[in-house]
Write a protein that binds this DNA or RNA. Sequence first.
DNA 1: TCTTGTGAAGTTGTTCACAGCT
DNA 2: AGCTGTGAACAACTTCACAAGA
Lengths: 258, 258
Amino acid sequence: MATGRTHRPATRSRGIPEATVARLPLYLRALTALSERSVPTVSSEELAAAAGVNSAKLRKDFSYLGSYGTRGVGYDVEYLVYQISRELGLTQDWPVVIVGIGNLGAALANYGGFASRGFRVAALIDADPAMAGKPVAGIPVQHTDELERIIEDNGVSIGVIATPAGAAQQVCDRLVAAGVTSILNFAPTVLTVPDGVDVRKVDLSIELQILAFHEQRKAGEESASAAAADGAVPAAAARRTPPAEQGPDGDVPAVMPA
Amino acid sequence: MATGRTHRPATRSRGIPEATVARLPLYLRALTALSERSVPTVSSEELAAAAGVNSAKLRKDFSYLGSYGTRGVGYDVEYLVYQISRELGLTQDWPVVIVGIGNLGAALANYGGFASRGFRVAALIDADPAMAGKPVAGIPVQHTDELERIIEDNGVSIGVIATPAGAAQQVCDRLVAAGVTSILNFAPTVLTVPDGVDVRKVDLSIELQILAFHEQRKAGEESASAAAADGAVPAAAARRTPPAEQGPDGDVPAVMPA
DNA sequence: TCTTGTGAAGTTGTTCACAGCT
DNA sequence: AGCTGTGAACAACTTCACAAGA
């Protein structure tokens, strides 16, 4: 379970850094926008600006994919779109199931960007028998009893969990047992999965807490942390202040692969 | 290391690593669960397991907050809950506005975990006049025209954007102009903000694409990347395969502070 | 004895700066 | 002349391994 990182399938670029993989969708989005405006080529500087990163990072990222640019000119937009899509596996069809069709599940089912790239909502699954048959985003909700059959019949390998926290691990176990090997978890729980299964998590509450941390720092910039380590709960401090000198820089995980 | 830790935690936390900050909410959740079961103390090993990290990392993380543990014993659950809450700024009240009350915005408004820790939905805002006055999650939706007044009246410093991509930047600009300094962005766009404003983003599509990347790797483990860099689109490859030896290890950003 | 707290080593990610190609 | 691609320096983060202390 430790780092079994000794695979080298010979050819150059096996082993794209995770940080790079995480940015490829960003580049792809920016490139798609350029493509729609029929822009033929783009420099690392321009593309980096559109994606919100710096150009050195972008060039380094692309260097892991191969030498797809032209010195003195830039990158061919269409070609890059294709290469990145291929690298991400978006040239194939990914059937996805969403489990837990509450407010969030319904929102996800309705989310357009879903279908836009290779992803197809193969089924919506909910534990509430009253939901069964009701269409959400044009797709009839099916009961949890059908879960295993649906996974098998559709060759689903990616599952989205949008259930309450209490049900998430159990749903996860069933998904994995049925053959799912990638899970996107919206439930506020840590999921335990066997090796070989990826879990990514999205947690609103965690994101807000991280923002609150920085927000608090902005507020108390010079007010020394005098009454600090004690047990005394400080009476509500000032909430709004003029923005501090500088926001923090650098990205942060919100994710937990297995 | 940097922190001179002799007797008084005093100026403890100048510069908690971002990676650590991002994990504090995770620890807090695990601790809260223990607290509810009236567990008095917990070891780094146990707590790490509950939070889904390894114990060395957890101890290192806690060491940035101060020496809150007892050697040979572990950590006092209640005390740690308080210390982390305080560090994250959750001992104060954070009024939050949600802009864009579509499927997702409504889901967020209904999300329970919201209120559970210091966060309070101060207002829901939507551009559709037909929505105005309608209650969502018990809170009446207000029109975008009111945005600036709402921010001011409630001293809001955290805004959540759940609008379509096209409207996000404009909404963001207005939020910032009105005094918001932290933004959680669900719209699939890169937001540009002035220094001192934090942006975190949550993007379903990006998460799925990252999963697809790893999923593709699992499938083609030994099929050499023969027909690789060419322009030829490979006919849909096998989709399901037995899990590979090892899932990838290490976390990945899904976020973009400014 | 047991578990924390932490230097030191190792790993991954970012930025610099410039050689090399068009 | 301009822009990519990349080695090398730097910075952040993680893991190791063990001394210190309850």
